[in-house]
Amino acid sequence: MKLSNEAKVGITVFLAVVVAIIGFRFMRDVPIFGTSLNISSTFEKADGISNGSLVYIKGVRVGSVNSVQLTPENNVQVGMSIDTDVNIPEDSRANLTSLGIVEGKSIVIEMGSSSQFVETGDEIAGTYAQTIMETLGDQGEQLGSDVSNSINELNQFLRQLNETVDDETRGKLDETLSNLLDSSERVANLLEEKRGDIDLAIESGSRVISQLDTLATNNRPKVDSLMTSLEENVRELSVVREELETASASLNQLLDKLNNGEGTMGKLINDPSVYENLDSLTIELNKLVKGINEDPGKYLKHMSIIEVF
């Protein structure tokens, strides 16, 4: 078939446009034919997310990000297109996270439990999860200064050490070291000599331990009951402690009341007039007793019993 020029041009352009559209949709990860589920989620920030970033559910890629924009509230709204055959409960959460240290960011949807599924245009909750790298980055400054401080100190120490260790000291140090070497040699020799004893000691030690072990195994019931009663005691103790606490609380209350001058005792303690009355009464009584001592008859003349004296 001989094609006219117009037909050739038409075919070329038509095919190119079709291929371009298919390719575009393919690269944007939206279904080549038909529609997809478009939902969105809001995050405090969207570092590392851009159009085409992938969306996962339980590690399975289900779609991709198709828009990233700032909201008036200064958050970031991320639109996602999801395969239509995935049902996402309404209470699902979108986590903006990274799958690995070097991997780029992606969105992981945590499935909720609702029986209602999201539809196009719906929004699900979103959280921004910091990655290890970001945490490191945030703390890096602090960490850096710490490290450099430490290094400074280390430097200083080394410098001081260097200064201290002049030739004389160095000689002494050498001496010390050689002494130390000597000592360690002797220790080694000693160990060599006493190897048998040491072995023996270790052996008996392990025997003792194993015996202890056996003992413990044999007496397990007893130990158990001991533990139980101990536990019981502890429980009782705690009851007692609680009671004590209540008691002390009431006591506190009582003392408070006393301090505040409530009740007779309180008044007694807090009202000076009572005391004064008592005081003057005592004085009077003293006077009376004195008077009676001096002249009992004066008071007792009408009292027959007294007249007996």
Binding site: R28, S53, G104
Partner: peptide
């Protein structure tokens, strides 16, 4: 394709 899609910007086209 994952990499290609991740860095596919319509502006590039």
């Amino acid at each position: 394709l994952e990499g290609a899609r991740m860095y596919f910007y319509p502006w590039d086209v």
